[in-house]
Structures are given as structure tokens and as C-alpha cells.
Simulated assay, not measured.
Amino acid sequence: MSEVKLAAETRSDFGKGAARSIRRENKVPVVLYGHGTEPQHLTLPGHELLLALRTPNVLISLDIDGKGNELAIPKAVQRDAIKGFLVHVDLLLVKRGEKVNVEVPVHTEGELAAGGNLLEHVLNALPVEAEATHIPSEVTVSIEGLEAGAAVLAKDIKLPSGTTLAVDGETVVLQVLAAQAEESTEDAGDEAAEA
């Protein structure tokens, strides 16, 4: 799990106008909350935060006004629908050794059995519980040789040590769908003649 250090500034101005002003300075308005504390309104550098958020469940070490460090993980990210820049981010305060519930991306490796079958990702991300400083960046599932009708359940996925499922083990994560047979041109011609 990667840890990214960012310098944060506290902010006291709120509302749309203040947020627009912050974004004009290439910064992002952020709210840090958790552990029963009062939410902290912060400003983070836009480009550095954007790069950090490319890693799923990134651990962010915040140096708040040079006074102290806090650890946080992204909870909610709002982006501009057209241009894609960050509009607002909610961060969840975490402590070292604390367990958190997060969703980890599911990646596949290998090839399905021959026959043109399709792989359906029922879950693109697997809900797990892990220590805040040891969240896996992804889980990898082998689909080598799976045939139509096969399914991979949550309990079948090998998780890193210290990580447990936060979803029912019988939940379907991946399934293989049979390829639909195309009608031959003769059959289509016969049906047209009958009509």
C-alpha cells in the first residue's frame, strides 16, 4: 500500500464562492472526518491530490498547517462531469493498526476455455476489511480454463494476510456466460419464407 504525503491548509471560508476561489488556485476543498472528531475543512494541492487518487484506497499522510500529521483514506471523490478535475474530496481519518472497510479492485488473469464465452464482472471491487496501513491495492483471480456456467464466489478469492471479506462468502464476483449461438443464414431464410 502506498502512502502519499500532502501539505494541507485549514480553511474557514465556506460556500460555492469560496470553493470556486480555492479551485482557481489549483487547490481542492477537502473535509476530513472520523473517530468522533469535529470535521476539519482543509485545502489540498490539486495536482498532487489528483495523482494520489489514481491509486485505489491510497493512504494519505496530511501535514496540516505544519502543526501535525493525520492519516486518511479517500471516502468520497467528486469530479467535474465534463473536464474531470476534482471538485471536492471527503477523507476518512484512520489510525495505524485500525481496521477499515474498503472496496478493492478485482483483476483477472488467464484465458477462459475455448468457445467464445463471456466473462461478467458481477463485482468490479470486492468489499474487504483490512488494516488501514495495509490495504491491498487489488485482488487477482485466475479465470484459466473456466467454462460456461462457472462462477467465482467471494470465498474462493485468495486474500492477502490480515484481510478478510466484508461481504457474504457466497456472493458471486465473476461468472462465465455462454456465447449466444448465431442463427445460420439458412435458418433465417427458412423463417422468412414461412412468414
Rank of each mutant, 00 (worst) to 15 (best):
V4A: 04
V4I: 10
T10W: 00
T10Q: 05
T10R: 01
T10D: 12
R11C: 15
D13W: 03
G15H: 01
G15Q: 04
G15N: 04
G17W: 02
A18K: 02
I22T: 15
I22P: 13
N26Y: 06
K27A: 14
P29C: 09
V31G: 14
V31R: 00
H35I: 14
H35K: 14
G36T: 13
G36D: 06
H41D: 11
L42M: 05
T43P: 11
T43Y: 06
L44N: 05
L44H: 03
P45H: 00
G46V: 03
G46P: 04
H47C: 07
L50P: 05
A52H: 01
L53Q: 03
N57Q: 13
I60P: 02
S61P: 04
L62A: 08
D63C: 14
D65P: 05
D65F: 07
N69G: 15
L71K: 12
L71P: 12
A72L: 10
I73T: 09
K75F: 08
K83T: 10
L86T: 11
L91Y: 00
L93T: 05
K95D: 10
R96W: 02
K99R: 08
K99D: 13
N101K: 15
P105M: 15
G110Y: 08
L112S: 07
G116S: 10
L119M: 07
E120P: 10
V122E: 10
N124Y: 02
N124Q: 11
P127G: 15
P127H: 10
V128A: 05
E129G: 12
E131K: 14
A132V: 08
T133V: 10
I135A: 00
S142Y: 13
S142R: 09
I143A: 07
I143D: 05
A148I: 13
A150H: 00
A151S: 13
V152M: 03
L153T: 06
A154Q: 07
K155G: 15
K155V: 15
I157V: 12
I157N: 01
L159K: 05
L159S: 02
P160V: 11
G162P: 09
D168S: 14
G169F: 04
V172A: 08
V173E: 01
Q175L: 13
L177F: 02
A178Y: 03
E182D: 06
E183A: 08
E183S: 06
S184L: 09
E186T: 11
A188Q: 11
D190K: 00
A193W: 06
E194Y: 03
A195P: 05
